[in-house]
């Protein structure tokens, strides 16, 4: 038996594809609906990519862009401030990611174990709140709290407790290279842990109660239930969250920008803040250089995404892109 589209041979059915034009015509409604999206993606996502060419040009306000080849990259790779910013970006982002994820997991597990629903919901709301504060406000609050002047709360407490003597200088937490990173991580944990718990709590609520009942029958303690039921159930989500966020590590800017200063450039300056100063702190910047640094950042970001995809394939059996 056969018709225009199918042929039956030895019990199998071979579907002969219709010509592309005909298929498009048959699905013209869908294609017409897709056109606006396609145009938008082209204009908003691909058209701006043409700006990449400026990484290879001198491009100043009031001047005509002129080809300079790899000059900007040579300048970038020979500048110690750039490499410092690159290293800081990776260190700050990765440590922040692991710490906030770890804190989110711990808090999620504690919240999950909490029996009193009212207390649980109240605590959840309280720990979510910092996420909704802008970084500028967060920085102002912590700058006041950590101020080295006599009005600084933490320094005042250290003096009251006798840790700082009357003749000791105050600690300038945000201008001390040894202190800045721990403070930065702490503020990030305070701000983002609550929000990070949402996805883990959702996973925890999906764990079958039968597993816990079985553990109860086996005589497992609460800690053992966390160790042998809760954590294994969370493992896949933790890895997914880590992998997805790993792709964004090069985007660090705002949280650093509002908290750093010239005393701690060596440990705090990231690529985003480096680009900002090279572009906006000079009277007539060469946008070609900023584009070159931005392009390098994008390439590193892209490589990280590919690594994450590979890792995701291995761990979860499917990629993220």
């Amino acid at each position: 038996m056969s018709n225009n589209n199918t042929t039956m041979t030895s019990g199998t059915v071979q579907v002969r594809k219709k010509p592309l034009g005909l298929r498009i015509w048959n699905n013209r409604g869908h294609y017409i609906m897709f056109v606006p999206v396609f145009i938008f993606v082209l204009i908003l996502n691909y058209w701006p990519m043409l700006g990449i060419r400026y990484a290879f040009m001198e491009y100043k306000a009031g001047g005509t862009p002129s080809w300079t080849g790899f000059t900007h990259f040579e300048r970038m790779f020979s500048t110690s401030a750039f490499w410092s910013a690159f290293g800081n970006t990776l260190v700050l982002s990765l440590v922040k990611l692991f710490l906030t994820t770890f804190a989110s997991v711990i808090v999620s597990v504690f919240l999950n174990e909490m029996g009193n629903l009212f207390v649980k919901k109240t605590l959840q709301t309280i720990i979510y709140l910092p996420h909704f504060m802008s970084w500028a406000v967060v920085a102002s609050i912590f700058t006041l709290i950590l101020s080295p002047s006599s009005t600084g709360m933490i320094n005042g407490m250290l003096r009251d407790m006798g840790i700082l003597g009357p003749n000791d200088s105050s600690i300038y937490f945000l201008a001390d290279s040894k202190m800045w990173r721990p403070i930065f991580y702490m503020i990030n944990i305070w701000k983002d842990t609550g929000w990070g718990t949402i996805i883990f709590l959702a996973t925890l609520s999906g764990i079958s109660p039968e597993l816990y009942e079985a553990a109860d029958i086996d005589g497992a303690t609460r800690l053992q239930k966390i160790r042998y039921v809760t954590m294994p159930a969370l493992a896949n989500t933790i890895i997914t969250v880590l992998i997805l966020n790993l792709a964004k590590v090069m985007n660090l800017f705002e949280s650093v920008f509002v908290l750093y200063n010239s005393a701690v450039y060596d440990v705090s300056d990231v690529i985003g803040t480096y680009i900002y100063r090279q572009t906006f702190m000079v009277a007539r910047p060469d946008y070609g250089y900023s584009t070159a640094v931005g392009l390098f950042r994008s390439i590193v970001g892209c490589i990280l995404v590919l690594i994450c995809n590979k890792a995701s394939n291995k761990v979860r059996g499917r990629g993220i892109v």
């Binding site: 100043k60 201008a175 010239s262 005393a263 450039y265 060596d266 100063r277 090279q278 000079v282 910047p285």
Partner: peptide, 15 residues
């Protein structure tokens, strides 16, 4: 074009 680099280095010294 590059005064920001000098200003950065100067501010680091002051700090």
């Amino acid at each position: 074009e590059r005064s920001a680099e000098i200003i950065d280095a100067r501010d680091v010294v002051i700090a």
